[in-house]
Design a protein around this nucleic acid. Structure first.
Length: 103
DNA sequence: ACGGTGACTAACC
DNA sequence: CGGTTAGCCACCG
């Protein structure tokens, strides 16, 4: 349900290709479409993220999307993503779960 | 054209 | 490690 927008379409296409249990950072997604607009990706997710597996896009630190940490935690856990708890917060083990398209 | 804003980052304490 | 601080880029009024 994305408008005819180059950037938006590419971002959604990339996120849609992330396999279960794997994740990409906002910066990774941007890089995958030849951009460096990590914040731009976040913006797209905020508006059209509901149509794609948004919980597989995390911050460079491995932490979940701001404001969605609870929902993302359950979904990732179900997929068997390597989640490491640290106090009240948690983060995905990027070394093990980071995914790059076309690999 | 211009400035503010945000599901971000890397660099520094 | 965690907290702060500039950059960054696309988007919107």
């Amino acid at each position: 349900v994305a408008p005819h927008d180059e950037f938006v379409e590419r971002v959604l296409a990339v996120v849609d290709d992330i396999p279960p249990g794997r994740v990409m950072t906002y910066g990774d997604v941007a890089a995958a479409i030849g951009s460096r607009a990590a914040r731009g990706v976040g913006r797209v997710m905020a508006r059209y993220g509901s149509a794609v597996p948004w919980w597989r896009v995390v911050r460079a630190s491995g932490e979940p999307a701001a404001g969605h940490e609870d929902r993302a935690a359950g979904l990732l856990a179900d997929e068997g993503a390597p989640v490491r708890r640290s106090g009240a917060r948690w983060r995905v083990d990027l070394r093990a779960a980071r995914w790059s398209p076309g690999r």
